[in-house]
Design a protein around this nucleic acid. Sequence first.
DNA 1: GTTGCGTTTATTTTT
DNA 2: TAAACGCAAC
Length: 679
Amino acid sequence: MDLTTLNQEQLAAVRHADGPLLLLAGAGSGKTRVITFRIGYLIRQRGVLPAQLLAVTFTNKAAKEMKERVEELVGKRQCRGMIISTFHSLCVRILKEDIERLGYKKNFSIYGTADQVRLIKDLMQAVNVDGKKYDAERIQWMISDAKNRLIPPESYTVRYQDEYEYLAAEVYPKYQKALKAFNAIDFDDIIMLTVRLFREHPDVLEKYQQRFRYLMVDEYQDTNAAQYLLLRSLAGERRNLCVVGDDDQSIYGWRGADLGNILDFEKDFPGAAVIRLEQNYRSTGNILAAANAVIGNNRQRKEKALWTSGDKGRPIELVRCMDEEDEARVVMERIHAERFRHELQYREFAILYRTNVQSRAFEEQLRYENIPYVLIGGQQFFDRKEVKDAVAYLKVLVNRRDEVNLLRILNYPKRGIGETTADRLIRASAEGERPLWEVLCAAGEIEDLGEKAQEAVSGFVALMERYAQRFARTPNLADTAREFFAEIKLEDEIYRGTDDPKKARRRVENLEEVVNAMASYLEREEKPSLSGFLEKVSLLDEDRPDRDSKEKKLERDAVTLMSLHSSKGLEYPVVFMVGMEEEFLPHKNVLNQGADVEEERRLCYVGITRAQRQLVLTGAAQRKKYGQLQPRIPSRFLQEIPGELLDSQTSEGRPPASEEEQETMANNFFSGIRAMLGD
DNA sequence: GTTGCGTTTATTTTT
DNA sequence: TAAACGCAAC
């Protein structure tokens, strides 16, 4: 650990051990390095025990990376007991320990958005009088928003008087009650319940305050009210809280992140030291100048400017294209040309866009040109129906009170428990105020159930009980799961229910991937359990297994495609920011709602600062939308970049066999040959 | 319980 | 344009 490699500010931050510290770290200022050095410094120089350290991040990826870097710095042995995790994993851990104090059982289910929406739909059906269809997702969003602001059901008040608010006010308490009856918690509860646990049971809080002597938080600008309170409680009197963040990179306001947390840190923690890291080690001068110019238009921010001791680099390219197809082609041409001229690998390119749907045109073109790529985000693996079905079975095995998932699998695959039977069971459950599972177990006692139905139900109960026991006994979870899915014939059901055989094949593969994910979980984990696996799945704590997973492990050389949001924290030698048009960036919805354009500008800033050497901005003059051509207007943020930094071009549409195109074709030819040779 | 057809509706970002 | 949904007919 060589402290002399740090600049003055970085060194000051590393050496600040006790008391609150606000580290304002601009993009590319070596922030992660400072955090890891600081952890190392505390352990090595200050004799802090690893178990007394807690570092919190937002994404599993960031947590994993930080952990690896610390281990590399101070040695794996010195890291034993140190916790570096996301807010959500940390809180699940805490809840696993003491949630019984709040009246839940330890085998609680974690509900993701899809589960939540399903439950809310059911509840709305029960409430709904006028037969009008309301958007359950919107209600889900409103409840989530309330939870992020720590508003419990009983305190939810209608402020704007729109019909959705009234509906939310009605549904929210029922929703929360149902969750508890199902022994389930949703994503927002993970944080909110932990805060409540600490507040209502000071002895529990004290336990953790005793343990965690030094707290560190990355991406502090993204914390919401609940997370803020959590940190505050944990920091306690000792106030050894070091937060790292950049108000200019706050892009999760829509998820309840409160920019006030970072802007008011000095007020919340009087006497806090403030250190700014403004020297940038990532990008060229031109790129930084553009970034500074754009973000300078925001009013709500702490004044700062990135600078570099390096040179200006190449100008930023701005390419005006005809339409989305043309845009994709332009990007491909650039990739080929850059790769050729500067001997770059595919993995050194990233294509960034505002919305996930924009990836499509690029994917098509990349596939057409045989360029390998990885797509980050988009349709989540665990959101696919077949995956959710499989996971639902496992969830019910662990927690039989989980009725959302119980109802999901009750008659899937078909086992003779039709709608009428299900309705009768549900009614019996409601009338007797007993959990649905108990009713199922006692199906024989329900008179209005036919003999056949009774048999079907008890068969299902027996099946679940049998496998619950097997899972509890065997260490070989993956094999048991495979057998389980085979026995209930999930695969057959997929083939039957999918007309396109190709799609069916895909889905079956996805089902297999669930078992594979479980197998790799078993390898990694010291004391594996079914509920442990489900926890990882719910928190998306695994590299998402998709059909590329094997190759991906070999660090495939591929172009990266992702949203601007997912790009935060990453860097690439060449970055394409595509779709630089009004209504994309800033996004249409933001404009309509008259909401915060500043957050969109920050998003733009995040994108620009991902680029190390070369930044290419593209936009289309027209674009197909819902099958119709629409004229497009260049993004207002482009005008905020000083003209002298830009090299503006117009794509020539399709020039008949230009030099560049010939080069493209030649490259395609060669990459085709390489592909044939198995390169 | 399923299939097929016509109609509607899109509209952001994710732990 | 495309996917998702509802409804009617099997």
